[in-house]
Amino acid sequence: MTTLEIRDLHVSVGTTQILNGITLTIKSGEVHAVMGPNGAGKSTLSAAIMGKPGYTVTSGSILLDGKDVLAMPTWKRAVAGLHLVMQYPTEVPGVKLSEVLSEALTARNSSLPNLNKTINEEATRISFDTELVNRAVNVDFSGGEKKRNETLQLAVLKPKIAILDELDSGLDIDALRDCAKRVEDATNEDQLGALVITHYSRLFEELKPDFVHILAKGRIVKSGGPELADELERDGYAAYAEVAK
């Protein structure tokens, strides 16, 4: 059992305070959805958890099974079991997915005996074209291919807790279903804990949240069960933007 505890997290970008005290606890096998309007600080939350340069934690803490995540460099956070699925995965010219995964596994001291076989099996499972495995990561990939690629990495690296930043942006309905279902399967098969950051509830058809949190103006203004997502779908965010003021 793994626990990611985010306590009273305050984050600024440059001189602008974006997050004003986020508290969340995610355990193995749980799916937590963080929903909010544009500008609420959703992507800042994912960047701060992974330690992206430019995002400064001004107070608060993040603990993974009691270990201080904020004291770790980004790569050690990943090795410790955190995984970020990016909203806009970066193109890395000339670097193949198989190379990235091989180095990522080496850093975890867990070389897979047959990495290429695992990659191919996982690619097939989410309808990711295996040709792309030997091409430069994300370069000239479509939106759907990029998200399938991110999901494939998650499946191979088997993190303890995944942060999915807008998995549903920029991809078609088939790709969304394949990716969301694979993450849902991981929460059941591997007890993956997931922090799902999203705008819309369409992702939840395949990836069922246990908890839904509403983020507005850098604060979690309401938490509840899946029914909260239905309410947002019906009424929008307007009411919560007011609460945050």
Binding site: R77, H83, P93, V95
Partner: peptide, 30 residues
């Protein structure tokens, strides 16, 4: 080296010096 490329690889758990090597090699690849 592009910061975003470096961060992308490090966020997969690739240590900085190896991320740097991969990016430089990728740069020379073409």
């Amino acid at each position: 080296i592009d910061d975003d490329q470096r961060f992308y690889l490090e966020s997969r758990g690739v240590p900085p010096e190896i991320a740097e090597r991969l990016v430089v090699f990728g740069f020379f690849d073409e």
